[in-house]
Design a binder for these strands. Structure first.
Lengths: 114, 114
DNA sequence: TAATTATATTTAAGATTCTTATATATTGCA
DNA sequence: TGCAATATATAAGAATCTTAAATATAATTA
């Protein structure tokens, strides 16, 4: 498993991206989805995830709907209209960041920096 | 330019990778190199870079040699033997992290999570 | 010549974000 | 009955980054 130190900073964008693709999700499902997509390499911790979700909600980037399921509360998070406009920019930024990291870690042979 | 929020966590590995590939470098040169390699998309700030360098030095992962150049001090950082063994692992971890991020942001079509 | 840009390192204060641990509660399986 | 899985929340502390300020010289430009 990848040390989550690396995850710092990109967690927010990952959450937004998943909500965009998958539609409304609850916190626990987000951790499952990320673990599944990365074959167990990235595991979100609840201590990091829930505060991020709450913050995005307070910023009106996410909205919530709660339901009681099996006597357990389940809070679904979904992108607001504002969230939809934010997520596009965030994904673009993360994509560029990934490309930049690759350029450092695995430079394309013959790549000309100038 | 990419917001350095994303950089949190990977800065250390980037520094180690560059010192492995380029040999001893001083702090200012590291900022230049990263900016050049990422075509200006990643800019290291000194407030983030120098504390990291000092910390890696205190952990014996980096060693230093100073020289006076044009009446300005220049501190060269280089991997110690311990640093060489650490950097390999760190780069592997960062590579896996990049792959995982890509799997989330740009999933390969037909990829089977199971 | 004066001003600006580039080179070069350091550190403090504050903000943000993550880790770890704890708390609570139900369902299903062995 | 005990354990694993499901589900959310939060507090304390650690780690890391941002912003700003301090210091100093060389080279370029107006």
């Amino acid at each position: 498993m990848i040390s989550n130190e690396l995850l710092k900073g990109s967690l927010k964008t990952i959450v937004l991206k998943l909500l965009k693709e998958e539609g409304p999700m609850h916190g626990y499902a987000l951790t499952q989805k990320v673990e599944e997509m990365t074959r167990g390499k990235i595991k979100l911790t609840y201590g990091a995830l829930y505060p991020i979700l709450h913050k995005l909600e307070s910023e009106k980037i996410l909205g919530t709907a709660s339901e009681i399921r099996n006597n357990r509360i389940r809070v679904y998070y979904a992108l607001t209209p504002k969230g939809h406009s934010v997520v596009t920019e965030k994904i673009k930024e993360l994509t560029e960041f990934i490309e930049s990291l690759q350029q450092i870690v695995q430079p394309k042979p013959g790549f000309n920096y100038a």
